[in-house]
Computed example of a mutant assay.
Amino acid sequence: MNADELLDFALGQLDDPRRRALEEDARLDPDLDARIQAIRRGVDDLCDDGLAYAPPPGLAERTLAFVAQAPANDPAVLDYIPTRVPFRLADFAVAASIFIAGLLTLTPAVQRSRERMDQAGCVFNLKQIGQSLGEYATIHPSYPAPPGDRADAQSGLFAAMLRGAGLLPDLGVLDCPYNGRNDLAHAHKLASFEQAEELRRTDPASYEKMVNWDYGYNPGYRHASGRVGPISARPASLIAVVADQPPDGVLLGDVDHNSPNHYGAGQNVLYSDGGVRWLRSRLVGPDDRDVYLNNARKLEPGVHDQDSVILPPRVPFGTTAGR
């Protein structure tokens, strides 16, 4: 098992068969489990800078005083430059060739490292959202859902419900870094579900600018009575709750098209246990054939409690009307 595979496992990028095999290996091998946990902690540290520290008092003044005390007759940097460069043009050509060859060799590795860091950032964001949802679930019987008579509310307002409960202080976690940065300058206006709904009715243009994030939400499923019910806060099995947003337009109906957040390579999915897993296809499991459409192949709440559907942020909880 190489380091690349361990990193992919920590980021949730391995396919299910290999992932399950590694989970079993880690369960039986404490040393392997410790290595995996160390990698995950390292990824979290890279994604989160932690606390900021102020410089010691008077550092700037002491630095200026130290520079001012330098003897005036000390040689300057330019004094060390020779008057004649002891190299021929051919030497520069050889050095340039070596530099270009090295650059061509390193570029793919640098790009891969950057992609992995962006992937890690997406995983970190979804884990942060999962923590907020977990805290919400400790005081509510279900995950965020609008009042029963407000099924026309858009699913992206799950974030407004978390925000209103004081559980989502950093709205930056709603932006997937893999596809570039979204303009979340207007998102600070998001204060509560009622405030967002009022803005949607009175100032649609401002509302559109405010609800501008990369993750979709599972509105729940439709009961036999026809009523849409939210996901229970303590489901009996793993349910997809939040994920990279689905493809738009006609691509949504094509099961071979994944989320645009990762340029079609797959999607990160946050489950009800707080874990984030990477799906290379839209298949969730035998009871949930498409993470973006219900088992009736519609962009609507699930047809049963195991049928999860991740709606785009601006699709209503209870219906696809108005998309």
Rank of each mutant, 00 (worst) to 15 (best):
R35E: 11
R35H: 12
L28F: 05
D149P: 07
R84I: 07
V276M: 07
L78W: 09
V276H: 04
Q245L: 15
Y80T: 11
L106D: 06
G253K: 08
R18W: 12
G264P: 08
D91V: 03
G264Q: 10
A38R: 04
G266S: 03
R116L: 15
S308V: 13
R40C: 05
N294A: 07
A243M: 08
Y263K: 13
F66V: 12
V291R: 01
S272Y: 07
L103S: 13
L311T: 02
L157F: 06
L199Y: 00
Q111R: 13
P247T: 00
L162I: 04
A60V: 15
A109N: 13
D152I: 05
P204W: 11
Q119C: 11
G58W: 08
I239Y: 05
S132P: 02
I81V: 15
A137E: 03
V77F: 15
F193L: 13
D45G: 08
K298T: 12
A243H: 01
P56G: 00
L251T: 11
D183P: 01
T107E: 10
P204A: 12
W213E: 03
T63I: 14
Q306N: 05
I129W: 02
K127L: 13
G302K: 04
P71G: 02
V250N: 14
D45A: 14
D290P: 06
A265K: 13
Y263E: 13
S97N: 11
H304G: 11
L22H: 05
W278K: 00
A26P: 10
G249P: 06
V173K: 02
L270T: 06
P108R: 05
D74R: 09
A3Q: 14
A109G: 06
P169F: 04
G148E: 14
Y215H: 03
